[in-house]
Design a protein around this nucleic acid. Structure first.
Lengths: 362, 362
DNA sequence: CTGTTAGCGCCTTCAG
DNA sequence: CTGAAGGCGCTAACAG
């Protein structure tokens, strides 16, 4: 492998001159430049960016640490990150944590050792002390999707609460009153915020929250299936299910099928996150869709801004809107045809009210 | 950022000793080792792997260049690569080419400059001279999915011809005679091999190939939609469509819906590649599924074997079997209820035979 | 078991 | 506009 010295020798110049031809050609006279370029061509010289990185203390490489790239939501985020990074001349190292904090820490350690210029991180599991750890690092880190405690960090996410609120409102507007939510781990902000949105919509409608219809799991298919089975075992059973992500939704739908229940005839199902990016022929599931691509893109732009030092000192929090797509999996509630939004309306309709809440649902 | 010299100074040893504690602890006496470890701890020392890579001429980084990570097939391959790489202590830089050879070459150049230890490449577009280029490089490269000309390279792929043959046989066994194939670019090996499998199955069944039922496109949804429209415009129109990948299938299904045709009642549809890895609730499409995860895994293992020099000198070609999953999108042909496999059988059933082929279909 | 020397390939400084 | 010297942080090779 020829080095820049070989190029220089062949062109009859000093190595630094060859270097300049590569990195700031305008500072070299045209004839010299030509000779160097010829030498490069003849030798098939390939610049060694590892040496360059060592010298410059910049690798032009970012890292993206996600829970699981196989989830189409993350796939799309990855694509957004990739495109934004490539556009700015950066490469991306991809890592999966599978929600394991140990794996996450191992990845982060290696990434810092490899001197990546910045890290985009979807915190795995609970990641309790991650916030403190991040603040100790000098490498810029942007957090995606899930809030970390003590949030003195840049953060980009979708509107979990708002999206959950929209989905729940949608179900309410279809006349559903008995709505269960199947969510992720209690410590994961998205899981909790989606429950919050659900609660808000129910509260606004004057409905009580029934605790056994709020189930926490681990964002896995198995968990979705189990949680669905659990809420189906309650009496009266819910008329609608809200799955807090796409994977849970799949698990829940499996449980429903196993129970011989049809969607939406017997039960409506709605979910957070779309299933696949455009590869669905006739999308079935009513969802709120987060702008996954944009999330990756914006997060990367924010990270790059930090790298170039052009970002303000204040940490940013970017919340992207989630958009409702009503499809076939949600339909009017068979038992209750009428929407009940407010307590006064409920009373007007002759609903029984107990302790300021509509009875018979909690 | 403390360096290994700082650690050494603090521990009262030479830098090389500190280095040894990191890289081959067993060669250092226990007490010295402890002192060095303490120093590392106290200083919060982080090894600089860029410097290490420069010295060792190994980066422990692989590159994976795919056409589009957003396609769930590639997503799964990526995951297989990731896992195999992580397991062996390697990181993966991900690049998308979007079928652009220019983009591909830009990526490859940078990756070589970054001194990646090996490259996994899904050749973009036609990549005519890629084979020659690869042989010139000293960096090990494993080709995925698509054959390159002059194949003195390691290669891992799914069984395109066999899979296409299976799908076509499946349609034939349902009584279909008028089967169109919608494939990718003529120069892409997978596109051509899938047509070959289709031809073989038809030939075996004694059926003529009708040229306007063999359409070449570019593996895009638009292309799939257009090709479907084109074959639908023929008379008599096909009773079954074979889409040579999942994206084409989606485009074709869109075209069918726009034309008001039901699947499978009016037309059967089968496809190469599954849609999403497990996120489909009730998979609809009959497909042959390539073992995408395993493909990534095997390719990575092969690459790693090359890196460690343990691989034989002979280039390997690994062809993984594709597996048929019969689902709802394919059903018995309405007009012909009976399977015709061989010419003699056809004659026995009173079919008109012209030039040794069954008439009325070509 | 430990240390000295030297150099991986590049680019910043400072001088010509 | 061009060059000489030096060092980024690390680890082989060779002493001791």
């Amino acid at each position: 492998m020829p080095t820049i010295r070989d190029v220089a020798r062949r062109a009859g110049v000093a190595p630094i001159t060859a270097s300049r031809v590569l990195n700031s050609p305008e500072t070299v006279s045209a004839p010299t430049r030509e000779r160097v370029k010829e030498a490069i061509e003849e030798l098939g010289y390939v610049q060694n960016r590892v040496a360059r990185s060592l010298r410059l203390k910049r690798t032009h490489t970012l890292a993206l640490v996600v829970t699981d790239i196989a989830n189409p939501f993350w796939t799309t985020v990855v694509r957004g990150v990739e495109d934004a990074a490539q556009g700015a001349g950066y490469n991306v190292i991809l890592c999966n944590t599978d929600e394991s904090e140990a794996k996450q820490q191992r990845h982060l350690d290696v990434l810092l050792q490899k001197q990546v210029d910045g890290i985009l991180l979807v915190p795995a599991g609970t990641s309790t002390e991650l916030g403190d750890w991040i603040r100790k690092q000098s490498t810029p880190i942007v957090i995606l999707d899930r809030r970390v405690r003590s949030a003195q960090v840049d953060f980009v996410c979708g509107d979990s609460e708002g999206g959950a609120y929209q989905l729940t409102r949608h179900l309410l507007s279809l006349g559903h009153r008995r709505i269960a939510v199947l969510t992720g781990p209690r410590q994961v902000s998205t899981a909790e915020e989606r429950v919050t949105g659900y609660r808000r919509a129910l509260a606004e409608a004057g409905l009580q929250i029934r605790p056994d219809w709020v189930r926490y799991g681990d964002y896995s298919q198995e968990s979705g299936c189990e949680m669905a089975q659990q809420v189906l075992a309650t009496t009266p059973r819910p008329t609608a299910l809200f799955a807090a992500n796409n994977v849970i939704a799949v698990g829940a739908l499996r449980a429903l099928r196993q129970a011989g229940l049809r969607v939406p005839e017997d039960l409506s199902v709605v979910a957070f996150d779309d299933m696949t990016s455009g590869l669905m022929v006739e999308p079935f599931l009513t969802v709120v869709d987060q702008p996954a691509y944009e999330m990756g893109q914006r997060a990367t732009e924010l990270l790059l801004a930090r790298l170039s030092g052009s970002a303000t000192e204040i940490y940013q929090e970017i919340v992207l809107p989630a958009e409702l797509s009503v499809r076939r999996s949600s339909s009017p509630c068979a038992s209750i045809g009428q929407l009940v939004y407010t307590l006064p309306e409920a009373i007007a309709q002759g609903e029984e009210v107990v302790h300021g809440k509509i009875a018979g649902v909690g």
